[in-house]
């Protein structure tokens, strides 16, 4: 630890978004960086909102990332070119409080009497980006909805206690087709040295939803080899984003504040979804006010009549409607079919 200068950040107020880009839905994220702003890598992965949410991070994994960051620092600046893509594209706004939706905040936290209220939380940046598109009447693209996909979208399960080592490969997945194997250590992806699973997610984040190939350098049984993984059009839709805290605002926009879960009962409808919760306050109560209740089974929503997930329904609505459009749904309740509607936001 004494080989690093350790900096603790607790808010996004005033933070330079050109330099600090990471998965803003994390409640714990680490960036390793040179004093000149060059990013060595990231650490911090999460894939659900349950008590298992921390399964993807470990002290062992963090230690591996720290060791790898130190190795990159020792090799700097000779390795500078391979690190260039670890800095993201220029953001729309230089700092969070410049977003139109966040202009009530100041560049610093008010420690006197409004600490939490004056803090821009990391996830609010995702919210602001999406709200900006929504207010402009534009669809929210897959690249903005399906953020930082887990490696499982490519059929890879990483070992959270290692740097970037494959634990399992799913059958008939892009990873299996590419020839990747359990135990393979991914040294480079898209030309970038990986120090963690989060670094691989960074590469996936910047791989277009329309599909692309990712060249990998892999260490297998002590030998380095090159493997290319191919991701087809629409590949990002295979990741679940509904655990993310920023999904709360998407539920407001698309579902009038509903939270949908798979219906596990024997009498499930065609979509296979039921209403877990309906918001009670403000803009999150729109669906409840329209008559939708927790426990309702969704037979049809926004023209979707087949098997669906909450994430696919939200994506469909946010990619095919504008705020104010009518969202029609039919619910089953007590053996009856009830047509209802509310307005998208």
């Amino acid at each position: 630890m004494d080989q690093f200068v350790c900096l603790r950040m607790i808010q996004m107020n005033g933070v330079d978004l050109a330099r600090f880009q990471f998965d803003f839905d994390m409640s714990f994220g680490v960036i390793f960086m040179n004093a000149d702003g060059t990013v060595y890598g990231r650490y911090g992965t999460r894939n659900e909102r349950s008590e298992n949410a921390d399964d993807q991070i470990s002290m062992e994994g963090l230690r591996e990332a720290m060791k790898s960051a130190l190795a990159l620092h020792r090799g700097y600046p000779a390795n500078q070119a391979s690190l260039a893509s670890k800095t993201g594209p220029e953001p729309k706004y230089p700092t969070a409080e410049k977003y139109p939706q966040l202009q009530k905040y100041t560049p610093v936290i008010n420690y006197q009497n409004q600490v939490a209220k004056s803090c821009i939380h990391c996830h609010q940046i995702h919210n602001a980006e999406r709200q900006m598109l929504r207010e402009a009447g534009q669809p929210i693209p897959d690249d903005i909805l399906y953020l930082y996909p887990m490696p499982d979208v490519a059929g890879i399960e990483m070992d959270p206690k290692k740097r970037a080592t494959i634990l399992r490969i799913n059958d008939d997945s892009p990873a299996e087709k590419a020839g990747l194997c359990p135990g393979d250590e991914i040294l480079f992806a898209a030309g970038q040295p990986l120090i963690s699973v989060a670094d691989f997610q960074w590469v996936l984040r910047h791989t277009p939803a329309g599909g692309d190939s990712i060249p990998l350098q892999v260490l297998r049984s002590g030998k380095k080899g090159e493997i290319t993984i191919v991701l087809e059009n629409g590949w990002k839709k295979n990741t679940d984003y509904t655990w993310r805290v920023s999904t709360w605002d998407l539920r407001r926009m698309a579902l009038g504040g509903l939270s949908l879960v798979p219906d596990t009962s024997s009498g499930k409808t065609a979509t296979g979804l039921e209403v877990k919760a309906a918001g009670k306050y403000g803009d999150h109560a729109v669906a409840r006010k329209a008559g939708v209740l927790p426990g309702d089974k969704i037979k049809e929503i926004a023209g979707l009549t087949g098997p669906a997930s909450e994430g696919s329904v939200i994506a469909h609505i946010l990619q095919t409607t504008k705020p104010g459009d009518k969202i029609e749904l039919t619910v089953q309740r007590g053996g009856k079919e009830i047509p209802l509607s509310f307005k998208a936001q």
């Binding site: 900096l7 603790r8 714990f28 004093a35 620092h73 990391c122």
Partner: peptide
Amino acid sequence: WIYNDLKLAELEAGEKGKPMMIVFRC
């Protein structure tokens, strides 16, 4: 640890030739 002061961390990292470990924790 340095608390919420990126400029100080950059200065120290430059002077000492160390990388920065920047932790965002809500």
